[in-house]
Each structure stands twice: as structure tokens, then as C-alpha cells.
């Protein structure tokens, strides 16, 4: 039995301490620290180039930090180690579906390649997960035949197949129409409620952030300026954060507060 199979179900607790990363002379992460409780949704906001995606890539082991540490359930994990011990999934901004595979093959890829189930079981699981994200019957389509929203939902279904303990969403509603964005937001909330998965959502979309986040973090120039519950974050004194919150769409929507 693999280490992964022995991992406990439900969400994990995540602690990030003093994470630092530089590419050449550019400091991309400058001492980022935060913690996420099991089953919590933490939303990370911030301007482009503030280090949000790089932070996610560190959390899933695609990058190694220059300094600092990441702990899951109290255990320090480094690089790809995280994937050996915990079921961590990532929904990429571009969905990152394999274009040469069908939707069913994309969704079932983890199970197929690791031979974790029989072909019949994989078909059933894939069908279940696609139904969950509202894409029943799309098994034989290719990614190129899908809209942006559908591709994102397939990516979520692919993540769900792993029965993840931690899901990282990188701009899950970018380039989507409001209806598709709504479906994705509902799905993120439903997943947390259904399987108690810990979630980290990176987004520029303030409405989405205030709707989803149990807490919201604000990253600027590689520093985590603030992490707080939505109500308190609105009152945070940091001028950059206030500027970001006021920008683009006027005042922060109050109706989502309830």
C-alpha cells in the first residue's frame, strides 16, 4: 500500500513559515507566513506579480523555497515530498488539461497511471466526478471542444478523483462568464462542505474572494500584508490593500458579507 493510500481522509492543517524565494535578483516571496485550518478556505488576493501563483507552486512541491518551511499536519514537507505523503491537488489557471486525451482520460489519469482501480471502477468514478461538476456525458469530448468554464470544471473533476486533502485553485474563475464563475464558486464551496477539504484560492475577483473566503490574505510584492476574516480585512489600514479593494469595481460589495 502506498503512503498516499494510508493518508487520513478530510482536510489537512497547513502552516507556512517565513517562505522565501528569489529568481535571480528578483525577490518573489519575502518571508510569507500563514496557517490554514482543516476544512478552511483561504483566499489569496493581490496584484499581478505579487507572488500568489509562485506560492501555490511551493505548496504543491513544483518549486522549492530558498528558505522557510511548509508543514502539513505539523510535519515539515520539502518539494515533491508533499505529494508523496498527502493528496494535494491543484486546479491551474489554464486548466492544464492534456489536449491529446479525452475528458474521461484526463479526469481518470491519476487512477489509470497509478493503477489504483480496475478499468470499470475508473469509468464509474470518472462519470461520478463529471456529474458532480455538471459535465455528465462529456467523457468522450476532447479539451479543445470545451468552453473555458467547462475546461475548468474538468480540471476540478480531475482534482476530485484524487480525493484531495488540500486543493489549490489558481484563478479558478479568470476568463469565465459570470454564470460559469458562479458554477465554479458553488462547486468550491460544495466541495468543502461535502468532503471537508482544505482549500486555498488565488483570485483577482473580489466578489469571489469575499464570497468564498473564511479568511482572505493580501499579497503584495512577495509579502503577505494581511490575513484576516473578510469583515476585518475591509478595515485593514494598509493603503495598498485599500487601494486594491477599491479599484476596478468601486466599493467592496457589502451584500456578500452576510
Amino acid at each position: 500500500m502506498s503512503t498516499i493510500a494510508q493518508a487520513s481522509p478530510g482536510g489537512v492543517a497547513l502552516q507556512v513559515r517565513d517562505l522565501q524565494k528569489r529568481y535571480g535578483a528578483e525577490k518573489v516571496l519575502q518571508g510569507v507566513s500563514f496557517a490554514v485550518s482543516p476544512g478552511e478556505i483561504l483566499v489569496l488576493m493581490g496584484p499581478s506579480g505579487s507572488g500568489k501563483t509562485v506560492l501555490l507552486r511551493h505548496l504543491i512541491g513544483l518549486e522549492e523555497p530558498d528558505a522557510g518551511e511548509i508543514r502539513i499536519n505539523g510535519q515539515v514537507v520539502r518539494g515533491a515530498q508533499v505529494l508523496e505523503h498527502y493528496r494535494v491537488a491543484m486546479v491551474f489557471q489554464s486548466a492544464a488539461l492534456l489536449n491529446s486525451l479525452t475528458v474521461a482520460e484526463n479526469v481518470g489519469l491519476y487512477l489509470i497511471e497509478h493503477r489504483l482501480r480496475s478499468a470499470e471502477e475508473i469509468r464509474r468514478i470518472v462519470s461520478d466526478k463529471l456529474s458532480l461538476v455538471g459535465l455528465a456525458g462529456a467523457e468522450d469530448k476532447f479539451p479543445a471542444q470545451l468552453s473555458g468554464g467547462m475546461r475548468k470544471r474538468v480540471a476540478i473533476a480531475r482534482a476530485l478523483v484524487m480525493e484531495p486533502q488540500l486543493i489549490l485553485y489558481d484563478e479558478p474563475t479568470s476568463e469565465l462568464d459570470p454564470l460559469s464563475a458562479e458554477v465554479i464558486a458553488e462547486e468550491i464551496l460544495a466541495l468543502r462542505d461535502r468532503i471537508g477539504v482544505t482549500s486555498i484560492v488565488v483570485t483577482h475577483d473580489r466578489t469571489l474572494a469575499f464570497r468564498l473566503g473564511d479568511r482572505i490574505g493580501f499579497l503584495s510584492a512577495g509579502r503577505l500584508v494581511a490575513v484576516d476574516v473578510p469583515q476585518r480585512l475591509r478595515q485593514h489600514p494598509d493603503p495598498m490593500l485599500q487601494q486594491f479593494l477599491q479599484a476596478l469595481r468601486g466599493p467592496v460589495p457589502q451584500e456578500v458579507e452576510s
Partner: peptide
Amino acid sequence: AEIGSMQVYQEIDALRTLRI
């Protein structure tokens, strides 16, 4: 070209996150 486009469009990163 095929592997390069998979690299650019994060498909290879996606494979790694699936432990492939």
C-alpha cells in the same frame, strides 16, 4: 513542439501534481 507546448501550457506541471 508537443512537449514544449505541454511545458508552456502547464500540462507537465499538471502531470507532476498527479505524481506522474
